[in-house]
C-alpha cells in the first residue's frame, strides 16, 4: 500500500507542479496561433504535438491543469467551509431539529447533481469557470456535511465527550476541541477524493461548454475541440484525456494511501 501512496503523491505532485509552473512559463506561447503548424505529431519541438490551431499541446495541457486544479480546489474549499460546520452542528444535535434541518437540506441538494446545477446557472447567467466552481462546490457541501456527521456521531458517544461536558463545556466548544481534531484525518482523505471528483466534473462541464470559456485552456474543452479530429490525429484527444486520468488516479491513490497511513486502528497494530 506504501507504493500506492508514493505513486499517488508523485502523479498528483506532477500535475500540481505543471499547474503552478504554467502560471509563469510554458514551453510555447498558447495565445499565438500558427495555422501552418496545425495538428503536428509529437516532435522534439512539440513533445505532444500541436492542435488544430497550431498551439503546443503540452503548453495547453499545463495551463489546463491550472484551470482544473483551481476549479476543483475552490470547490473543495466551498464544500469543506460550509459542509464541515454543518456536519458538526448536526452531530452535536443528533436527532434534534438542527440535525433534521441539515440532513433534509442535504437530501435536497443531493437531488441536484452538479451538472444540473451548472445547467441552471449557465442558462441564467451564461457559461464561465466561476459557474463550474459554484456548481461543483454546492454539490460538495452535502458530501462533507454527511461525512463529517457520520464520523462525528460515534465520537459523541465516547466517554471523553461526557468528561468534557462534566467540565462544563458546551457543544460548540466540544465540537471544536474534541470532535474536529479526531475526524480531521478522515476529512483530509475525503478532500482528496472530492478534489479528484472535482477535476472530473470540471472536465465534463467544460467538455459540454458549461465550464471555462475560450481562450482559457482546459482539458475538457481540449477534448471537445479534438473530437472531430480524433480519427485522423488521435494524439490530440489522447493527451488531455491521459492528463485527466493520471491526475485523478494520482489523487485517488494519494487519498487511499493517506487513509491507510492515518487510520488509528492500523497505527495501533504497528
Amino acid at each position: 500500500m506504501r507504493t500506492g501512496l508514493i505513486l499517488g503523491a508523485l502523479l498528483a505532485g506532477l500535475a500540481l507542479a505543471a499547474a503552478v509552473l504554467s502560471a509563469f512559463w510554458t514551453p510555447h506561447d498558447i495565445a499565438r496561433l500558427a495555422i501552418a503548424e496545425k495538428l503536428l505529431p509529437p516532435s522534439p519541438a512539440h513533445w505532444f504535438g500541436t492542435d488544430h490551431l497550431g498551439r503546443d499541446i503540452l503548453s495547453m495541457a499545463m495551463r489546463g491543469a491550472q484551470t482544473s486544479m483551481v476549479v476543483a480546489l475552490v470547490a473543495v474549499a466551498i464544500g469543506m467551509g460550509l459542509g464541515v460546520p454543518l456536519g458538526l452542528l448536526a452531530a452535536a444535535h443528533r436527532d434534534r431539529w438542527p440535525d433534521d434541518l441539515v440532513m433534509r437540506g442535504n437530501d435536497l441538494v443531493f437531488a441536484f447533481p452538479s451538472l444540473v446545477i451548472a445547467i441552471l446557472i449557465t442558462a441564467v447567467f451564461g457559461p464561465s469557470a466561476v459557474n463550474a466552481i459554484i456548481a461543483i462546490g454546492i454539490f460538495n457541501i452535502p458530501v462533507f456535511a454527511r461525512v463529517t456527521r457520520g464520523a462525528a456521531l460515534p465520537i459523541w458517544t465516547l466517554d471523553y465527550i461526557r468528561a468534557a461536558q462534566v467540565a462544563g463545556k458546551g457543544r460548540a466548544l466540544i465540537s471544536l476541541q474534541h470532535v474536529l481534531p479526531n475526524i480531521a484525518s478522515l476529512l483530509i482523505v475525503q478532500a482528496t477524493i472530492q478534489f479528484s471528483l472535482g477535476i472530473l466534473a470540471e472536465a465534463g462541464l467544460s467538455y459540454v461548454g458549461l465550464g471555462a470559456q475560450p481562450p482559457t485552456p482546459s482539458w475538457g474543452r481540449m477534448l471537445a475541440e479534438a473530437q472531430t479530429m480524433v480519427t485522423l490525429t488521435p494524439h490530440v484527444a489522447v493527451i488531455p484525456g491521459l492528463c485527466i486520468v493520471l491526475t485523478v488516479l494520482g489523487l485517488n491513490l494519494l487519498g487511499d494511501g493517506l487513509r491507510d497511513a492515518l487510520d488509528p486502528r492500523l497505527r495501533v497494530l504497528r
Partner: peptide, 16 residues
C-alpha cells in the same frame, strides 16, 4: 482505480 479515474466522455471517444 483506473476505471474511477476515466472521464466517461473520453472513454466514449476512445470506444468510438
Amino acid at each position: 482505480h483506473l476505471g474511477i479515474a476515466l472521464p466517461n466522455f473520453w472513454l466514449a471517444m476512445l470506444l468510438v
